[in-house]
Write a protein that binds this DNA or RNA. Structure first.
Lengths: 82, 82
DNA sequence: TTGTGACTGTAAGTCCGTC
DNA sequence: GGACGGACTTACAGTCACA
């Protein structure tokens, strides 16, 4: 089955967050969002809005287009397996 | 004054849409969104959600991260002029 | 530290128009 | 072809409590 764009995005930010040694709480605080919302995003329950993407990217110290590039690679590399 | 992220995004997709010779109506149809919403986005009235970004990018035949890269360049190159 | 349910508010997104 | 308005529905966004 094809992985959802949301799931891929969640996977990417979780990876980056872990790499920075940040907790969901810290990422939420610094990006002025909510911890439970970060949790939701990482579990692929929502599509973030563009400004949320930018706020998160800033805290994760990555250029937004670089973050999206990671998402693209995972998302478009998928083979359509049932 | 600092240009809004929404305005920058709108500017970028309008530029790309014009370059493809597409009308707002066509972009809306192919990306399965609404014509008035495309108009709103181009005028910087909304932040699109991530999946909207991806749907639009696909129609504009550009990788999402390349689209965001264009936004980044315009957005972050801004000097904080009052 | 994170997942999750319940809840609320606002913004994204659609559809109907007119100019 | 595009700006703009109104009304509407859905989904994102944010808060709190609890395991």
């Amino acid at each position: 089955m094809k992985r959802d764009l949301r799931s891929v995005f969640g996977e990417v930010i979780r990876e980056l967050r872990d790499a920075r040694g940040l907790s969901q709480q810290e990422l939420a605080d610094y990006s002025e969002t909510d911890r439970t919302y970060i949790s939701d995003l990482e579990r692929g329950l929502n599509y973030p809005s563009l400004n949320t993407v930018y706020k998160i990217a800033q805290v994760l110290e990555i250029m937004p287009h670089k973050l999206i590039e990671k998402v693209d690679k995972l998302y478009f590399s998928q083979t359509s397996v049932s």
